[in-house]
């Protein structure tokens, strides 16, 4: 097995874990959104690289084109990107509202304020 054989998947896995770690470990809500973005993008990379064939071109019906890349995953990811944009926009809007309501976007400070409210 040649070393860079699964190179693209390694990239996807590393990106995914980086994003996931940021989502879990960071207390700042904006940083969480950034982490979530990285996490989603890793899946986009996974899908896009999945369909690529070495030496393949775009799937155009023309003479001389025999090996071509499967375009379907790319189209799927176009949809997923739109979903990702919507999610990010909504998350950022929520962060703005949270800052208005709490005066902070640090998770532990919000938690403290909420605890005071409960008691």
């Amino acid at each position: 097995m040649e070393f860079p054989g699964l190179f693209n998947y390694w990239i996807a896995v590393v990106l995914m874990m980086t994003g996931f770690y940021i989502v879990i470990a960071q207390g700042n809500l904006i940083k969480k959104v950034v982490g979530l973005n990285i996490f989603q993008v890793s899946v986009f990379v996974f899908y896009i690289s999945m369909s690529k064939i070495k030496g393949g071109t775009a799937p155009i019906l023309d003479e001389g084109i025999e090996i071509y890349t499967n375009p379907l995953p790319h189209v799927l990811i176009l949809t997923a990107i739109v979903v990702g944009v919507a999610t990010t926009a909504l998350a950022l809007a929520l962060v703005v509202r949270i800052r208005d309501a709490y005066g902070t976007i640090e998770e532990d400070e919000i938690g403290k304020l909420e605890q005071e409210e409960e008691t």
Partner: peptide, 20 residues
Amino acid sequence: DRRALTAAFRYLVMGTIGAT
């Protein structure tokens, strides 16, 4: 309640991870 906002944000993060 303002806690609805943080609840929605938390759900957003976990829901997005689930969907991904």
